[in-house]
Simulated scan of single mutants.
Amino acid sequence: MKGLFKNKKSVITLGIAAFMTAFIALPLGGAVCASEAEVVSGDYGFVYDQDDLLTDAEEEALQKKLEEVGEKHDIQIAVVTTGSYSQYTIEEYADDMMDYGELGLKTGNDDSAILLAISMDNREFYESTRGQAIQIFTDSNLYKLEDKFTSYLSSGDYAKAFDRFADGCDDMCTSYENRNKIPAWKWLICVLLGLACGGVTVGVMSSGMKNVKQNNSAAEYEERNNVRISASHDRFIRKSINRVRINNESNSRGGSSTHHSSSGNTHGGHGGHF
C-alpha cells in the first residue's frame, strides 16, 4: 500500500478517475429510474405505459374503463406500451407479459384475458388472447377490433386509441354473451308471418271448395258395374337421388388461430403495424 501511493501523480490520477466515474454514473442511474413506468392495475387488468404515451390522468381513466369492462364480462384486459422488446417478437412479448403475471394478470391457461401491446420503435401492435377470450375474439373479430383503434395509433392519439380498444372489447364480449338469444322483435315477426301465411293458405283452399256439397256416404260417388280390374302390377317410373357434399376443408373460417407461448399456455392473437 505504501508503494502504491509513493508517487503523488498516481494519487492525483486515481482521485480524478474516481471522481469522474461517480459524476458520470449519477445521471445514468437517474435515467434508469426515470424510465421505470408505474403499473396502474386492478382486479381485472392493468395499464403499463413504459413508453410514456399517456398522461397520468389518461392512465387512470383508461384503467378505470378496463376495470369496468373486465368486471362486467369477467375477463382480464391490459394495455402495455414499450420502446423495444429486445430479443422478442411482438407476439412473444405480448404473450409473456400476460403469462408470467409480473404486472398483475392471472397466469392460468384457462384465465380469460386479452392484452394489447404497443411497440413504438417498430410501430407495431399485437393483441394476445387466452382462455375464453380466444373464442370471443376470433380472427375476424380481431380484425374488426383493430379497425376501431389503429387509425388513432397512426395519428398519435393514443388515449383515444386505447379508449376505442376498450369499447371494442365491451361490444364483442356483449355480442358473444348474447349469441344464442333471439330478440323479442324477431319472435314477433315470425309469429305475424306465420299467421299471415296460414291465413292466406286457408283462404285459398276455402274459396276453391264453395261448390262442394256434403255427402253422407262414399257410395254416392260410385258408378255401379262400370269398374272392372282385370290385372294389377307395380311399375317403377322415376327415381330420386339426394346428393350431400362432404366438406373436407378446414373449419377455421370464423374461428381463432392459436399458438403456444413460452410458458406452455395456448394463445390466440393478431397484430400489425400502424
Rank of each mutant, 00 (worst) to 15 (best):
H270L: 03
D99A: 05
S140T: 11
G198Y: 02
H267S: 04
E124D: 00
G194F: 00
G3Y: 13
K144W: 02
V244E: 05
K65E: 15
L116C: 05
A34R: 09
A61N: 03
D43P: 06
S261V: 01
C190L: 13
M172N: 05
R238K: 13
M205Y: 05
A166I: 05
Y176A: 10
F236G: 06
R179V: 06
T150L: 03
S206Q: 15
A113H: 07
S86Q: 14
N180M: 12
L105P: 02
I182K: 08
E177W: 10
D49S: 00
G29E: 14
A218V: 14
V32R: 04
A184L: 08
E102Q: 11
E36Y: 11
A94G: 02
D99H: 01
C197Q: 09
D110W: 00
T81K: 02
T258D: 05
G269F: 08
Y221E: 11
S252N: 15
D111P: 05
V32H: 09
E92K: 02
Y158A: 06
A113K: 03
D74W: 01
F19A: 11
K239F: 15
Y85C: 09
G272D: 11
E67M: 02
M120S: 14
I12W: 03
R245E: 00
R123W: 10
N211S: 13
D56M: 04
G131C: 06
K6A: 15
G45R: 08
G194P: 04
A166Y: 09
E92I: 10
H273M: 11
I182Q: 04
N122I: 01
D147G: 15
D96S: 15
I16N: 06
L26S: 04
S151V: 10
D99F: 10
V11A: 08
K8V: 09
K8R: 14
G70H: 02
G208V: 06
K64A: 13
N109W: 04
I246A: 02
D157M: 07
L105A: 02
D234Q: 10
D147R: 12
K6H: 12
K72G: 04
S119F: 09
D95R: 01
D95E: 12
L195N: 03
C197P: 00
D96T: 10
R228P: 09
I24S: 01
S41N: 09
C197H: 08
E67C: 04
D56A: 11
F46G: 05
E124I: 07
S263N: 11
S261K: 00
R130L: 07
A166F: 01
I16A: 07
E58W: 03
Y152K: 12
T258F: 12
S151F: 04
K181R: 12
E36C: 06
R123M: 13
V80T: 00
T201R: 10
G199H: 00
L4G: 09
A166G: 06
T21M: 15
R235W: 09
E91W: 06
G29S: 13
K160R: 10
N216D: 12
W185N: 03
L53D: 00
G208M: 05
D139G: 05
I229A: 06
L28H: 09
A184T: 07
N180F: 14
D157H: 05
A117D: 00
E249Q: 11
V204E: 07
F23Q: 06
S250T: 13
E71S: 15
A219K: 02
K239Y: 15
T107C: 11
D49T: 01
G101I: 09
S41H: 08
